[in-house]
Design a protein around this nucleic acid. Sequence first.
DNA 1: AGTATCCTGGAA
DNA 2: TTCCAGGATACT
Length: 283
Amino acid sequence: MPELPEVETIRRFLEKAIVGEKIVGIEILSKKQFPQEPKLVIGAKIAGIERRGKNLFINLSNSKTLWTHLKMSGQLIWVPATGSKKRPGHPIPFAGSELPAKSTRVIITLQKGKLFFNEMRKFGWMKVLDSAKVQAETGKLGPEPFSSVFTAEYLEEVFRKTAKPVKLVLLDQEKIAGIGNIYANEALFEAGIDPRRPAKEITPEEIEKLRKAVILVLNEGIRYGGSSAADEAYIKPDATKGNYQEHFRVYQRDGEKCHKCGKIIERINLAGRGTFFCPKCQT
DNA sequence: AGTATCCTGGAA
DNA sequence: TTCCAGGATACT
């Protein structure tokens, strides 16, 4: 599922690829994924691409913002026009298949290519809102992990108030923005903390270790272009895979040996989420 | 604060 | 054929 590093990878790609491009058409194949009027965005230019947590904001020249959340299986694929005279609707080859794919929900046509919004599970969406309202709409999101607000003091304050398992607090977007299941598991391993421990019982030393681990694994994820694990839908906008799955410490490694101590990685269910950890390294 | 819900492909 | 993951939100 696209988490902060995956969305940031997409953001950086699109920033280079489509900023300055004008939206000349939009094809909505699933109204649920784009419930508004196409005319709200047609004719506008892409002014910039921003990210907040797992949310992507495509800012337009008409003071509107195209707000996208990819949820679990959303993809944004950029296909530059080749110049060849293909008939409209002609399928475009991509990643061993073709576009539009069965999961394609929206096709945004720009001057120099097409942006495909694919979303297998139909949970993800695109919505148009006034750019000035973005801040208010995302006000409930917690701090960005890379911002100066994400301090040990802040985390201590959050953790002190709840007996929830520490992993659930990491996943709570109102506490920290952008962490999903992969990076929560990885950060807890890196910090040597058992994901089931009540947040309020995590010591200040461990909290600082965890804060650093969160930043470390998110940076790793970005460096490797995100993770495209076996059952993950995530791919980069050029339809190539990220590589972070090759560097997982625990995620989806249950039954395999811990790289640090050799014990077998375990999988448990925590609040309905697959949770992976080393029983020896994480206490 | 805990639970159902959305949705689909793939696993069991 | 049934079951289930999985993020965020709407409920209870």
